[in-house]
Amino acid sequence: MRIVIAPDKFAGTLSAVQAAHAIAEGWRRTAPASEIATAPMADGGPGFVDVVRASLGGELLAGTVRGPLDEPVPSTLLLTGDTAYVESAQACGLALMPRDPDGRNPQPGAVERASTYGVGELIASAIDAGARRVVVGLGGSGTNDGGAGLLAALGATSTPATALTGGPSALAEIGSLDLEAARSRVSGVELIAASDVDNPLLGLRGASNVFGEQKGLVDDDAKLAADTALTAFADLAGRETADAAGAGAAGGLGYALLLLGAARVSGFETVASAVGLYDLVAACDVVVTGEGKLDWQSMNGKVPVGVAGVANAAVRPCIALAGDVQVGNRELRANGIEAAYGLVDMVGEAAAFDRPAESLAAVAERVAKTWDRRR
């Protein structure tokens, strides 16, 4: 049989590349004669650059940029020909934000000061390296500044001068804005915002209200204050663009990129095309996907459902392996996933977290006994 293995990352334990390798290793123990193709996936969030590089190759350019709270953080961008791939989470990701005392949630108050300046530095580095097309993966951000920091890094100015670089708390004080230098910096460069989030910047469906809590905007007052700050920013930068689909992606990074003339594309589709997923699935018998937690958010356009959609279009069965499965069979099948298998259920929580690659391989070995019928 021909098997395609196309998982997302298992957040906190395995990258998508590591997860795909572990599943393939376990599957081969049961079915050594099967042809297995791995296609690690991402939707624009953490792991975006690694996944694209695994398929396209290219040159990794390492550097240091300003992190969300002004600390220096290491970063890489991928250059393939005249196209650069940038992962915004490397510069402003949730993983870079301080945590509360128990380590489970972002520290309340930190996001109000957090900036996307480092993402702008990454884009500038890509342009300086000769890129004429820059694809920015949006996802996994710990910021909520409407991309103001990104614009500042590319030359935008404001009054007061610090309004763009101090997160939404500073943005609330903005009096004027000039984007001319930032737009000049990216002139002649095709910008692509890769994200599957279609929320606008402001309001009930906007960045602050929908995604703010997971970043540390823990109560209604904090969300209102952040949304008010973004509104003041948008009143100067452009309210029409603030209403566009995807403007609210990555705490408003989508908005900043749209202001600079970026085109919005699906993060999943971008990666699927880069890794050749459609051709791989068309030539296989079974598709295997997965991620760390398969829950209601997964059913809302995340990688497993995206992979299942590709499989269903090719009339191929799709199954999922996950650290924890929190949705029922009916909902899974409604989203194109025939069956899902959770590491927590099959090997126990301790093994799933302490030995994730070994546990994922063991589960894949068992699952292959059901799904690889020609072994």
Results as ranks from 00 to 15, higher is better:
207 A>P: 05
209 N>W: 15
209 N>P: 01
210 V>M: 04
211 F>G: 08
213 E>R: 15
213 E>G: 02
214 Q>Y: 00
215 K>A: 11
216 G>S: 13
217 L>D: 09
219 D>C: 05
222 A>G: 01
222 A>D: 12
224 L>C: 13
226 A>F: 01
227 D>I: 01
228 T>V: 07
230 L>N: 11
231 T>F: 05
235 D>M: 02
235 D>T: 12
236 L>R: 15
237 A>I: 00
238 G>V: 11
239 R>Y: 00
239 R>S: 00
240 E>M: 00
241 T>W: 01
241 T>V: 15
243 D>V: 00
244 A>I: 06
247 A>P: 09
248 G>L: 04
249 A>H: 05
253 L>M: 15
254 G>K: 02
255 Y>V: 08
256 A>T: 02
257 L>F: 05
257 L>H: 03
258 L>C: 09
259 L>I: 10
261 G>D: 07
261 G>Y: 08
261 G>M: 05
262 A>P: 06
263 A>M: 09
265 V>K: 10
266 S>F: 08
269 E>D: 15
274 A>V: 06
275 V>R: 01
275 V>I: 14
276 G>R: 09
276 G>D: 08
281 V>T: 03
282 A>V: 10
283 A>E: 14
283 A>K: 14
284 C>K: 13
284 C>T: 15
285 D>V: 02
286 V>F: 02
286 V>Q: 10
287 V>H: 04
289 T>F: 10
292 G>E: 08
292 G>N: 12
295 D>K: 11
298 S>M: 05
298 S>Q: 07
299 M>A: 12
299 M>N: 01
299 M>S: 06
303 V>Q: 01
303 V>T: 05
303 V>D: 00
304 P>L: 12
306 G>L: 11
306 G>E: 09
307 V>K: 04
307 V>H: 03
308 A>N: 10
310 V>G: 02
311 A>N: 06
312 N>Q: 14
314 A>N: 13
316 R>C: 02
316 R>M: 03
317 P>D: 10
317 P>M: 10
318 C>L: 07
319 I>N: 07
320 A>V: 10
320 A>G: 10
